[in-house]
Design a protein around this nucleic acid. Structure first.
Lengths: 115, 115
DNA sequence: AAGTTAGTAAACCATATGGTTAGGTACAGC
DNA sequence: GCTGTACCTAACCATATGGTTTACTAACTT
């Protein structure tokens, strides 16, 4: 739908089947059949997921006889991670605020004990 | 569709309108009207995006008279960033391989010069 | 040459998504 | 109590998504 690269990457990776495929590919190249094995779904369905991943640039495909092995292409994941990094300060911030709250609670607790 | 938390987070964030809303909310709380302003789309459409973001736990909503202010909730973004971190080694690895390649090219170049 | 294996393409289907308009609810201010 | 503002719901529509089955192509095997 939206076809900017980041949206492409994120929506590709928003599907658990496709994330599992990526996880498998961290172990090394794999054929379509190998990739399909763990899933309770038809080979063409897996093919479609691979097309989505390839379209997002998250995998690339080779050729070896009648096999078309898939390989992980991590660059676009790096870009997505960079986008998320822009928000890191906000969860760090809430941790800081939580720490502050815990500090105040502890102080209050110690004051209560000392009374 | 897939309703595990990570899929919810990633598909919420896969839409550029919703990412823009999140970006706006890093500046602080905002009303629906304020959030809708930059977009060339109806208020109900923005409302739907807010529902998706809220459903994914990426924002929370308050109440102030007839306003229903939205506030960023970064925790789920942190979880998504953690998932992506699992792949960090792979883009680091390709950088390492690229570095190695550049090293070899440079060495070859220097050898060529010295001949 | 015939058969088998790996993968893709096409047609189809159900449901999800992202938008619209029209109409409703809740609160504030005169 | 009426009016305007802010927001939400409902109904609808077009397109996207995720799956199926069936049929095809390409390459290896015998």
């Amino acid at each position: 739908m939206a076809h900017d690269q980041l949206s492409l990457t994120l929506s590709a990776v928003a599907d658990p089947t496709r994330r599992a495929i990526l996880a498998r590919l961290t172990q090394g190249e794999a054929s379509v059949k190998e990739l399909a094995l763990p899933f309770d779904m038809s080979i063409p369905a897996v093919c479609k997921h691979l097309k989505v991943l390839e379209g997002a640039g998250l995998i690339s495909r080779g050729r070896n006889a009648q096999l078309r092995p898939c390989r992980l292409e991590p660059e676009r994941l790096r870009e997505a991670a960079q986008w998320l990094d822009g928000y890191r300060q906000f969860w760090d911030e809430s941790l800081t605020r939580l720490d502050g709250l815990l500090d105040r609670l502890q102080t209050a607790d110690e004051e209560a004990k000392s009374n």
